[in-house]
Design a protein around this nucleic acid. Sequence first.
DNA 1: CTGTCCAACTTGGTTAGTCAAGTAATCAGG
DNA 2: CCTGATTACTTGACTAACCAAGTTGGACAG
Lengths: 243, 243
Amino acid sequence: MGGGSSSAKYAHIVDVLRERIVRGAYPLGSMLPSESQLVREFGASRSTVVRALEYLRQLGYLEGVQGKGRLVLGTPPRRRPSPPARTYESLHAPEVGNGTVVGAGRAPASARIAAMLAVPVGEPVIVRQRIMMGSAVPWSTLSTVYLPAVAAVGTRFADVDPLREGVLDHLERRRRLVATDVVERMTLRAPSARESTLLAVSTDDVVLAILLVVRNSAASPLLAIDLAGILPPAGIEELFSLR
Amino acid sequence: MGGGSSSAKYAHIVDVLRERIVRGAYPLGSMLPSESQLVREFGASRSTVVRALEYLRQLGYLEGVQGKGRLVLGTPPRRRPSPPARTYESLHAPEVGNGTVVGAGRAPASARIAAMLAVPVGEPVIVRQRIMMGSAVPWSTLSTVYLPAVAAVGTRFADVDPLREGVLDHLERRRRLVATDVVERMTLRAPSARESTLLAVSTDDVVLAILLVVRNSAASPLLAIDLAGILPPAGIEELFSLR
DNA sequence: CTGTCCAACTTGGTTAGTCAAGTAATCAGG
DNA sequence: CCTGATTACTTGACTAACCAAGTTGGACAG
């Protein structure tokens, strides 16, 4: 199946209908002509028409309602992108072979941590730190994972042994959770004393801190990861697709 | 159409075939059983089988070759993500109503610019600067667009009038080009004298510089944008989908 | 041994038909 | 006037069949 480049009949129907939606001949919120009407208009079989409609549905132009019709959604909005590779790696790369766990345990949530995780100040949280340095990584970083202690029950976050899967994979698997999005917040700040020590930098240096808050479909935080690091002079790169 | 959650016959076929691919029953590089064989195995019509196969093809598990068969591609790799919203805006948001163009003209390419654009040092390039400040933007930035002067022929990049479309949209439209990816490189540095002046910051401050290099399918640079700005204390946020 | 042709297979696309399930409008009865 | 049943429409899914186009392997002639 494809769109415009094929000369197949279904592809022609896709093109005509999409053009009509895009130029407003079928406005947002209106109902598309029924399959029967389109069969007559295009002189095509119902299967061929439905094939074109299914393709438009997948692209986000239409929503089918059984028994009623197909609702025009207008031009599909740009979808929310997937995370950049570095964020993806932070969530999914196995800890094993990927730096050193330098601490794991419980602590009461500070105001900042409480805000991150949407829990009360003082609530016990699990804090797990791992450091990644050396030429195998694009930038030296200290990764600090936070999650509520109650949410960590049944997981291995409080152990210092590195996980054989990504931190998010581990949480989703052990707690049967489903993460749906991640908020990434980037800030510049001075390193803490501990960060200075672990990253072997001066407290006068500037660290790039990226806070990731992973959420479920109700937008509730499941997990937060604070990545703090020193960018190399050449910076760090990411590649994104424009197609 | 969908995958596993439906009880429809085609959905069941999707699940079974995907599971076989994932666990290696159909290894990467092998040919899937033919449609006829699958029709017999599942006791389904060819249309129902093909519907399942088309879905798997769209997910990236299979590649059909007319007359030959369907090649197993294995578990589809993670697709390259689309740019984060802020990068997307830099490329596609219309300049009009979005900051002030503070300079536009020709200059010989410095070594740095030459490297960015894959042109010889000294080659004439168009440099276009726009500043975005104030509460309407998440961070104050100076955007500097660079492209080879020969590539800018027929465009309005050398004018100080703001464009009514995004810079990449303008280039693609006027020059009939197709951009396929963008490399984003993030660095921290001190502001230049001009940046200090335009951004109203001290030369002792740290700017976050994001260099975007937009490329075509041959990985040739079409356009470079240097975004330099001061992060607010709260940082800047992005949202990414994990589904 | 090589080149050509053909049969048998494959996928890509189209058609016509059926049944299931949902929605909405209409009509009859109370 | 209200309610339940019915009818006519819709989409979701499945089936059987056909034609077009591509690939491959085997048979045969030179």
